[in-house]
């Protein structure tokens, strides 16, 4: 058997794979948070609940409408993104000029309500979601076994992250977004409908969370608290990466997933706390986060 640093290779690569999977979700979720924070100046505490709604929507659509994974992957982010647009129009737009704290409390309250409603309706036990037929099974790479679905999740989230980064940093629409993040009043005075951009940005961020939820459904059980479990770690990721940095959110998400996975191999006792330890260290050395712009 192949060993690396005295660790059997399948264990090492197995944990690396789990780290990359977790990292994919950290990256997708912290990316959405970063996009929303940049434009709305709101720390979206509803994000975990919206991720959970994505997973549930996929589950329910499969269960009751026979809508398969691939269609859900497209339809669910649009659907849940639309509920985000509604939330922005109904609530968030009215507290834009108030202190950050109001947005935080409002979105946190919404998360509690949404999760409560789902728990009432569906109970707290996890519901299984079948891996789509096309991606069942896996391949033996020699040094490890790679399930197809997990490979897909990593590859697809990389693509989504890159596409989002590209759209924001390299396109004309993205330049509107960056400019409106810096000085919304002036961008509006140039004739751009900034309030509509803000609404759509929130919808997009929520849609990303829902997309992550659909992708997570076949890996983790679909349950009302799946979001709140994950989101705590994601907030630590965001703090480490720095609020508002798109690239920072992506890189930190994947990197911390991997670090967490490797910690599980080399120092299992610390695996659940390592991210928070890193967060504390980063906060001491670079309070704005690794990629954050100091304001």
């Amino acid at each position: 058997m192949v060993e690396i640093f005295g660790i059997p290779s399948y264990a090492l690569f197995g944990q690396l794979l789990i780290g990359l999977i977790n990292g994919s979700f950290y990256a997708l979720l912290s990316l959405g948070l970063a996009v929303i924070f940049g434009m709305l100046n709101i720390i979206n505490f509803t994000h975990g609940a919206q991720y959970m709604m994505g997973a549930f929507a996929a589950y329910l659509m499969l269960q009751y409408l026979g809508v398969d994974y691939w269609i859900a992957l497209v339809v669910v982010p649009i659907l849940i993104g639309a509920t985000g647009i509604l939330i922005e129009r109904l609530f968030l737009q009215h507290i834009r000029k108030l202190d950050h704290l109001y947005g935080l409390i409002l979105t946190f309250g919404l998360a509690l309500i949404i999760e409560g409603l789902f728990r009432n309706q569906f109970g707290s036990s996890g519901k299984p979601y079948q891996i789509p037929a096309l991606l069942q099974g896996g391949r033996n790479l020699g040094f490890m076994f790679l399930p197809n679905y997990r490979a897909w999740v990593i590859a697809f989230s990389l693509v989504v992250c890159f596409a989002t980064w590209f759209a924001i940093e390299r396109t004309r629409l993205g330049s509107y977004l960056r400019a409106a993040t810096e000085n919304p009043a002036l961008v509006r005075a140039f004739g751009i409908n900034v309030p509509r951009m803000v609404t759509l940005t929130y919808g997009f961020g929520v849609g990303l969370a829902a997309l992550a939820g659909v992708m997570a459904a076949p890996i983790y059980n679909v349950s009302p608290q799946m979001g709140s479990d994950l989101i705590i770690v994601v907030f630590a990721v965001v703090v480490i990466g720095g609020m508002g940095s798109i690239l920072g959110a992506i890189v930190t998400g994947f990197a911390l997933g991997v670090i967490e996975g490797l910690t599980k191999v080399f120092f299992p006792e610390a695996s659940s706390t390592v991210i928070f330890v890193i967060m504390a260290i980063v906060l001491l050395i670079r309070p704005a986060g690794l990629f954050g712009r100091t304001v």
């Binding site: 004309r172 330049s175 400019a179 993040t181 000085n183 140039f190 004739g191």
Partner: peptide, 13 residues
């Protein structure tokens, strides 16, 4: 805008 290059600034409005 500091997050835009000169050309993007120019083409923004």
């Amino acid at each position: 805008f500091s997050s835009l290059d000169v050309r993007e600034n120019l083409l923004l409005p």
